[in-house]
């Protein structure tokens, strides 16, 4: 089974791109399964069901969804293998711009959109910088020049990635993307022992542990204070 991890900011077009890509992949006679990770709510699973693919969803609730991903990916891969799909795709919403669900040796795709602003490539951390393929959506809404400027910014923070435009509405580019994601040789039976591409923040503070009261005396563990001087850093 091929395992593919797809991540990206909320509403960047992940689900749209995945659905169009699945169509192209299935045209080639391959079967696909989807696992959707989110924090509080998603109805992407309904969209995937409509598209006729087996889907599993996990809501991380009070946890960072990427941390939750790391704790569950092994079971998820087992599920995919039991289902016997050729390709298992995970979709996770990158919410904190700091964590990313990518594993060393597993194909990692980041989806971002042209509308997110020209400084977005700077703001997104490992989720963008360590991806193998970067899909840029919503090119239909902006001019060619703007697409180029955005893509070149993306390129400068991740020059090794393949950058590919896909229109999530019409599917333009999805077929091209599908030729990049599947490889006959890959067969992931388990992810046990694999490593994250970039460590997630290790910080644990009182509030992580359920503290609700504000005030210095309630703060323990890894506490960091803003500098309140004249300059912003």
């Amino acid at each position: 089974m091929n395992l593919i991890t797809i991540s990206g900011p909320p509403s960047s077009g992940k689900t749209s791109v995945i659905i169009k890509t699945i169509e192209a992949v299935r045209q080639r006679g391959l079967t696909v399964g989807i696992v959707k990770f989110d924090c509080l709510y998603t109805d992407d699973d309904i969209l995937y069901e409509k598209a006729g693919v087996p889907v599993k969803k996990g809501l991380s609730g009070s946890l960072c969804p990427d941390h939750y991903f790391a704790s569950n990916i092994e079971e998820v891969v087992r599920w995919g293998n039991v289902k016997g799909v050729d390709m298992l795709i995970t979709e996770s919403a990158g919410l904190c711009n700091r964590c990313s669900p990518y594993l060393v040796g597993i194909k990692a795709i980041c989806v971002i959109d042209n509308l997110s602003g020209i400084n977005t490539p700077k703001k997104i951390g490992p989720m963008l910088k360590t991806a193998d393929v970067i899909v840029i959506t919503k090119g239909d809404i902006v001019s060619q020049a703007e697409r180029e400027v955005f893509a070149s910014r993306v390129h400068s923070v991740n020059p090794t990635a393949k950058i590919i435009p896909v229109n999530g509405l019409t599917g333009q580019g999805a077929y091209e993307l599908s030729t990049l994601v599947y490889s006959k040789e890959e067969n992931t039976e388990s992810v046990k022992g694999m490593e994250l591409r970039y460590p997630m923040p290790s910080a644990l503070c009182s509030y992580c542990l359920g503290e609700t009261r504000i005030g210095e005396e309630f703060q323990m563990g890894n506490v960091r204070k803003m500098k309140m001087g004249e300059n912003n850093d």
Binding site: V142, S143, Q144, E146
Partner: peptide, 15 residues
Amino acid sequence: KMVAQLSQNMNFVMD
């Protein structure tokens, strides 16, 4: 790029 595209949409969103 081997190709320059001029597409239907020519809006700008950048500030």
